[in-house]
Computed example of a mutant assay.
Amino acid sequence: MKAIEISELTKTFKNGRGISELNLEVDQGDIFGFLGPNGAGKTTAMKMITGLMKPDRGEVKIFGASIFNDYVNAMKHVGCMIETAESFPYLTANENLKLFARFYPQVDQKRIDECLEITGMLKYKNEKSQKFSLGMKQRLGIAAAILSRPKLLILDEPLNGLDVEGMLEMRKLIKQLSQDEGTTFFISSHLIHDVELTCTRIGIIYGGKLVNVEYTQNILSYYSSLENFFVSEVDRNGRV
């Protein structure tokens, strides 16, 4: 069974932008990188994949369940952070996670502390999130996304706002969850270098269309870097 199956997913906005005929499969165990420039349609696609936006047409299945016809089962084993990491500003990091934990009966205080530690937020456990930097809010968002030990994590620009140390720790966390717990990842980003170092498979989206999908290992056997491959694909499709 595939972790994600996307068929003919299409959404067109009044300004003509959007997603056109997106077809994609993500295998269980993949760390899939959804790579594209700003405005390419990454967030739009991820909102539709998680049921936050209705497409004009198309289908999305997560672990075999339709996101549109069987939402509860489709999202049962999914953790996600789309666009920005939201939290309640007048609650502490711990209180925010306790609130989210109410949706998951198996999550206790021990698991909350574990998630805070994994994301480097344990020392800020009792601080209110209104005082947090953008990077700290991102970390708290990741902690909330992994609370229920999801089989699939869908993360929109998870490295946004992180300093160099934070980026290194986040890459390490993603690889650790993939290897130790078999977590599948679907990650959008415009940070080419981080995608190259983190993701096992890469899909390039440009102008609302998926222009290529390939294993990172195969790309780097033909190109000196993912950046060169990306520039080549964008240039080729820009001419078309």
Rank of each mutant, 00 (worst) to 15 (best):
T50Q: 02
D30F: 04
A74C: 06
Q28S: 10
V211F: 15
A65G: 04
F32E: 00
V107Y: 12
N218E: 15
Q130M: 14
D180Y: 12
T92R: 03
L97P: 02
K47R: 10
G36K: 02
G120D: 04
L220C: 03
V72E: 15
P150W: 03
I146W: 04
E25N: 11
G51M: 01
H77Q: 04
N126E: 15
A85P: 05
I6P: 07
R149C: 07
K209R: 13
H190S: 10
N96H: 07
L153E: 00
D27N: 13
F185Q: 00
R102G: 13
N160W: 09
E21Q: 10
G120L: 08
Q106M: 12
V26D: 00
I118Q: 11
E169C: 11
L173N: 06
G58Y: 07
G36S: 06
P55S: 08
F68L: 07
L210C: 07
N94E: 15
K125Y: 13
G135E: 03
E86F: 15
T183G: 02
K128M: 14
K98A: 14
F100H: 09
K175C: 15
K131P: 06
K175Q: 11
K131R: 11
E227M: 12
K128S: 08
G36A: 09
P150M: 05
D27Y: 08
P37I: 03
D180Q: 11
R102W: 12
I205R: 05
L140E: 01
V72L: 14
E8D: 10
F88A: 09
F63H: 00
Y223T: 01
M48Y: 02
L116M: 07
D70L: 08
N38R: 03
T200K: 07
R236W: 14
N212S: 13
L91P: 01
G141P: 04
L197G: 05
V164F: 14
M1L: 09
T198I: 10
H193M: 13
Y104H: 05
M46H: 02
G64W: 09
A40C: 07
I192A: 09
N38L: 12
G18T: 01
G208V: 05
T84N: 09
S225F: 13
S224A: 15
P158I: 03
I192D: 04
A143N: 02
L162H: 03
E165P: 07
F185N: 00
K209W: 14
I174R: 01
G207D: 10
E8K: 13
L168N: 07
V72K: 11
I205N: 02
V26R: 00
N96A: 14
S133Y: 10
V78I: 06
E157H: 05
H77E: 07
E233I: 14
L168W: 11
I118G: 09
Y222E: 13
E59M: 07
D156H: 05
G203N: 05
V78P: 00
R239P: 10
F229Y: 12
Y222H: 15
Y90S: 09
I62D: 00
V107R: 01
Q176S: 13
I154P: 00
R102F: 11
S221V: 07
G29L: 04
L220V: 04
R149L: 14
I31W: 04
Y104D: 03
E181Q: 12
M53P: 02
Q217G: 10
Q28G: 03
I205V: 11
K137M: 13
S20H: 15
V60H: 02
E196G: 06
F68P: 00
Y223L: 06
K151G: 01
M121Y: 09
E83A: 11
S189F: 14
K125G: 08
G39K: 01
I62P: 00
